[in-house]
């Protein structure tokens, strides 16, 4: 469960809406890619220390992960060429879902790092 979902436990309506948004975003992409993007972003934040073995991944997936790793601290430096390469791999609709996923993964890691559920719990 994400830190945001956990923090919203006392508000089932908002929690349900948030879980739905999160779920719809993930459902638009390959589940393996979703897991890798979340892992890559978490690693940048120092949350998940398990390294990703990229040797078995295709070039497009490696591009996506390199892009996702820039989301936490370098989002304004991502170039048109980098974005075009990911969009070419995922297609335009896929790139939209991927952009939301990577940005949300970053924000959720940050919510975990400030211990949002702990703040709510007192």
């Amino acid at each position: 469960m994400s830190a945001v979902c956990a923090a919203l436990a006392a508000d089932p309506v908002l929690a349900s809406h948030y879980a739905d948004f999160r779920g719809k975003t993930q459902a638009a992409l390959n589940p393996a890619l979703v897991a890798l993007v979340r892992q890559a972003v978490a690693t940048v934040h120092g949350i998940d220390s398990a390294p990703i073995d990229e040797s078995t991944l295709d070039e497009g997936t490696r591009l996506c992960l390199a892009y996702a790793r820039r989301m936490p601290f370098e989002h304004t430096a991502i170039s048109d060429a980098e974005a075009a390469a990911v969009a070419l791999h995922l297609g335009e609709a896929g790139f939209v879902a991927f952009s939301v996923l990577a940005a949300l993964a970053d924000a959720e890691c940050r919510a975990e790092l400030v211990d949002l559920p702990g703040l709510v719990g007192g």
């Binding site: 508000d11 952009s99 924000a107």
Partner: peptide, 29 residues
């Protein structure tokens, strides 16, 4: 925690999460 109730902190946390994600998605697209 002195100024906000737990329910308000939860809502604030959701909001900041969404603001951040939305801004970064906008910028990178």
């Amino acid at each position: 925690q002195r100024h906000l109730t737990p329910a308000q902190i939860a809502e604030l946390g959701l909001g900041v999460t969404l603001f951040l994600a939305l801004a970064k998605a906008l910028i990178t697209m």
